[in-house]
Nucleic acid binder design. Structure first.
Lengths: 266, 266
DNA sequence: AGTATGGAACGAACGGTGTTTGTTCCTGGA
DNA sequence: TCCAGGAACAAACACCGTTCGTTCCATACT
């Protein structure tokens, strides 16, 4: 039983629960009735992920998860303080998947930008592979045990690139928000055109573009002029996500360049 | 009555409803019973904003809004197709407030970065002045009549700065997401420490910092080393929001620099 | 002037939501 | 063998967005 408690408590890492964690974070997952499919924190999160992947985030309700175990919602509250804590666990679960898939490479001053790009791409891939789960991640701090693994990786890369500590510490937030925003928007477009074929998507896009192009040109000269690029999926020959990523990386890198110059002069 | 319809239909601008708008967007707001406080699209949005400002986004329910008019939720559905459309209207309302407060200045190649910074700061100020309303804005496209005004302003500034059209068209999305993410996180911290004084906030921050600093240094060397900057509100002597803004602007500006160089060589 | 009509208003209900409460019942330890 | 404690769980609470069916009245037409 203490094994179960420790597993529930520590996740995949030997790290004590953080000070802001609720009291439930330290509770047990004892044996319980033997003839029923075992209920546990991990099993609950796994079930929730199954539902997310199959039916989307909105389908994840306490009743729906409990139904997966053939019981009622109340049973879950022995393992999870409330739904928000469950979402925290899901958050860290996805972070864990990302961290597990990341091939450890020693970051250097030469390869740091490529490594940063790769981690962010990987995180994007994982995030978007779980439907609209990212919608539940906004405003969460990645200080769960798996989140910290990712933060550590990111910090190592940034520091290897000569990014000032203050900027490096902050860049993780910025990148995280970028990833979540993009995953949410990705899913929105995906569900908006869920059952449409390529042709109909293009048709609807063209319809919006034409609407923008037909706006009064005296009041919206730039919107009218840029109706095409505004609705383009590859504005500068790049995927929209890649373009945002590039903007972010260039912005961050410029602080590294500043620091280098400053150190050179001092 | 046609006047009321036109007002409801067009908002603050003489722009026809876009092709993706629901059928309700063209419906009327007729006189109705005379002895009751007049119900209308505008009045409903205004009431919703009052509730958001006073009690936060979660308090905005159809029943709660209807209660403001002394009626039931069903009455609202004569003016608004569903809650999502209402949130669209709220979105555009906030965009309108932002656009109204923006002093029109002709953007030039010299002042474009300052202007961009100012617009984004203004939008941030407006957004955070309405509690957690930004949480409802994610995934919405700013192509309502007021949203388009802001898009137009942004595009004009970017193009004056020599930002390539494709990047300029895309930058609006990026900035919008940045603003929304930041507003959501802003409000999260504000409500987390809602009733705490300055001293207790600092105490809790220090507690988390100490937790990070006390992590096993062999597995989390960079998290341990940067525990301070990670929890700092002004990582590089700048407000966190200002730092993110700077990263974004530098990234975008670098594309303008690329374009200048390319044109010079050709 | 009288009447038909269409839309606003609205109470009630439907099928959900997260969470709490109170109870039953099993199991590990004394 | 007995007991304490915790898991399991049904029912209830207070909400939610939305729909349905009805009432009622201002307007538009005859």
């Amino acid at each position: 039983m203490t094994i179960a408690r420790d597993k529930a408590q520590r996740g995949r890492l030997g790290v004590a629960p953080p000070p802001w964690a609720g009291p439930k974070a330290a509770q047990a997952g004892r044996a319980g009735r033997a003839d029923k499919p075992q209920l546990s924190r991990e099993a609950i999160v796994a079930a929730a992920m199954r539902i997310v992947d199959g039916e989307g985030l909105d389908a994840v309700s306490m009743r729906r998860i409990a139904h997966e175990f053939g019981t009622g919602a109340a049973s879950l509250y022995a393992y999870v303080a409330n739904k928000d804590e469950l979402l925290d666990l899901i958050f860290d679960w996805v972070m864990g998947e990302t961290a597990d898939r990341w091939p450890e490479t020693e970051p250097t001053a030469d390869n740091w930008r490529d490594l940063a790009r790769d981690t962010i791409r990987l995180a994007h891939e994982v995030l978007t592979s779980h439907r609209d789960v990212a919608r539940a991640f906004q405003g969460r701090i990645p200080f769960g045990s798996n989140g910290l693994r990712l933060v550590e990786i990111q910090l190592a890369i940034m520091r290897a690139g000569g990014v000032p500590d203050g900027v490096a510490a902050f860049a993780g937030d910025l990148i995280g928000q970028f990833l979540i925003s993009w995953a949410v928007e990705d899913d929105m477009w995906r569900t908006r055109f869920a059952d449409a074929d390529e042709e109909r998507i293009a048709g609807q896009m063209a319809e919006i573009r034409d609407y923008l192009a037909a706006l009064p040109a005296d009041r919206f000269p730039n919107v009218v002029a840029l109706a095409g690029p505004l609705m383009s999926q590859q504005p500068e020959g790049l995927d929209r996500f890649e373009l945002g990523l590039e903007v972010l990386l260039r912005g961050i890198a410029s602080f590294a360049a500043d620091a280098r110059e400053r150190d050179g002069k001092d």
